[in-house]
């Protein structure tokens, strides 16, 4: 089965963020394909390279980065949702005249069309949110 995943909630705030990761990991382990993981609403914060959880807790951002590296996952952060929440890649930070960027490795920033495309191309689009 080819899945698209939509993550609508922020890390540590809401279990949706964890559930999306667990589902994606389990699906890959079962041999399913993940067409794309799309981060929307506060879900964009799952991609912040500035995230520093306590040492005895899971690292949600690094966990996605590692999973992406292992399975060549397409992790896409919505640009409109990202910009209003202060999430920028290097190129966009430069373009907007900001002095820092914070997009973690393994993620890329793109438009909402990527979500619609995931809906079209995947056999199931699974939404994790409130």
């Amino acid at each position: 089965m080819k899945f698209g995943i939509q993550v609508n909630e922020g890390p540590y705030q809401h279990q949706s963020s964890d559930s999306a990761y667990q589902f994606t990991k389990a699906a890959l382990e079962k041999g399913h394909e993940i067409f794309r993981v799309f981060f929307y609403h506060d879900g964009v914060n799952n991609a912040s390279s500035l995230t520093i959880p306590p040492q005895d807790d899971r690292h949600i951002v690094d966990r996605w980065t590692a999973l992406a590296k292992e399975h060549n996952l397409d992790l896409v952060v919505c640009i409109a949702a990202a910009q209003r929440r202060g999430m920028l890649d290097e190129k966009e930070a430069k373009r907007q005249g900001k002095n820092a960027s914070n997009l973690a490795e393994g993620f890329r920033i793109s438009g909402l069309g990527q979500l619609i495309e995931a809906g079209i191309q995947s056999e199931r689009l699974v939404v994790f949110g409130d």
């Binding site: 609508n8 929307y40 609403h41 409109a80 949702a81 438009g111 909402l112 069309g113 979500l115 619609i116 495309e117 079209i120 409130d130």
Partner: peptide, 15 residues
Amino acid sequence: YALESLEVVLIGAAF
């Protein structure tokens, strides 16, 4: 949620 849902609808309309 409502505002960002509407943003998806408007972009999605192009598809």
